[in-house]
């Protein structure tokens, strides 16, 4: 694979970059603009990429910084106006779950930006805690605590638990009895 060009390597990262952008922006059209900006910037700064380091982490850094500097405000304006996840299929989260991917997006959008970001960095771009810490400019301990808070909040927004579950030690095994019933 030594004849693989920089462009080839970038193509291989596209699914992760675009997924990250869609989830951040909550809109396909805005996400595609963001990805395009990211690719152009990456090329113009290609010589700042250290060979043998993680290309995905480098690209994600550019995309993330571009998002926060010029897309975040716009994304709040266009959200809901285009159909983010075309198919309203239920996620394969188990028979008990009637949650759709759109429900997950809506729950993510309710999170604090730093909480949403950390979930996406770990879950979508599949970067390590170390890489995520570097990208966010925080200590690894902060990454972990944000991740835990983000998970708890996401579970709450998805209706997987009652708010009291967050503050109390959930040793209660009979969780089903405490779970709010979902209309859908």
């Amino acid at each position: 694979m030594s004849d693989e060009t920089f462009g080839d390597q970038m193509v291989a990262q596209m699914p992760y970059l675009r997924a990250f952008a869609i989830s951040l922006c909550g809109s396909h059209s805005l996400a595609d603009d963001l990805v395009q900006d990211t690719l152009v910037k990456a090329w113009s700064h290609a010589d700042s990429f250290q060979p043998n380091t993680n290309l995905r982490a480098w690209l994600v850094t550019i995309l993330r910084n571009t998002y926060f500097s010029s897309y975040r405000k716009r994304s709040r304006e266009v959200q809901d106006s285009d159909n983010l996840l075309a198919q309203q299929i239920p996620v394969k989260g188990g028979q008990e779950s009637a949650l759709t991917l759109t429900d997950v997006q809506a729950a993510l959008d309710k999170l604090a930006p730093e909480h949403k970001e950390i979930l996406l960095l770990i879950g979508i771009t599949e970067l390590s805690y170390d890489e995520a810490a570097e990208i966010c400019g925080v200590a690894i301990g902060t990454v972990k605590s944000r991740l835990n808070r983000a998970r708890a909040k996401l579970a709450e927004h998805l209706g997987l638990l009652t708010p009291s579950d967050i503050d109390t030690d959930p040793t209660v095994s009979d969780l089903a009895a405490r779970r709010p019933s979902r209309a859908v």
Partner: peptide, 20 residues
């Protein structure tokens, strides 16, 4: 951490949903 603890069952369910 931070006193935030999810029930393992909730955590597993959340993990599946988010992974999907």
């Amino acid at each position: 951490l931070d006193g935030v603890a999810l029930d393992p069952k909730v955590q597993a369910q959340l993990g599946r949903v988010f992974r999907a």
